[in-house]
């Protein structure tokens, strides 16, 4: 099994799944990441055993819609949560420290070059 690099995307996805966002599109909403990022990351996380995907228990013909697949965090994944939080904190710090150079924390000016 390939080790999973704790990228910002992976960290964000782990955190929102741990928060209870279960479907791929919900994860997109919660992280603000694009579907082209979320799904490949989910596949890697599932393969690495950090999240587990499960099919909804409904009869598609009775419901008139296909079954949905939902994801949950595994105990291994849960162990990585502190690391994920730290990664997100790094990111926040990075953005936070970039704040002043963006034209003042008060937010009066437009976005400038970082």
């Amino acid at each position: 099994m390939r080790p999973t690099r704790m990228t910002h995307a992976v960290a964000g996805i782990l955190l929102v799944i741990a928060d209870g966002h279960r479907y791929g599109f919900d994860v997109m909403d919660a992280t603000g990441l694009a579907s082209g990022t979320v799904y490949p990351a989910l596949r890697r996380l599932e393969r690495a055993g950090l999240v587990t995907g499960q099919w909804e228990q409904v009869d598609p013909s009775a419901e008139g819609r296909p079954r949905r697949r939902h994801y949950a965090i595994t105990p291994e994944g849960r162990r990585l949560l502190p690391q994920a939080r730290a990664r997100m904190a790094d990111l926040q710090r990075l953005l936070g420290s970039a704040g002043p150079s963006l034209g003042g924390a008060s937010g009066g000016g437009g976005p400038g070059e970082p």
């Binding site: 997109m28 694009a34 579907s35 082209g36 799904y39 490949p40 596949r43």
Partner: peptide, 13 residues
């Protein structure tokens, strides 16, 4: 629109 991600997803798999 979100289903464009199906392509990178398929390639990953």
């Amino acid at each position: 629109w979100r289903t464009w991600g199906a392509l990178p997803d398929a390639l990953t798999i």
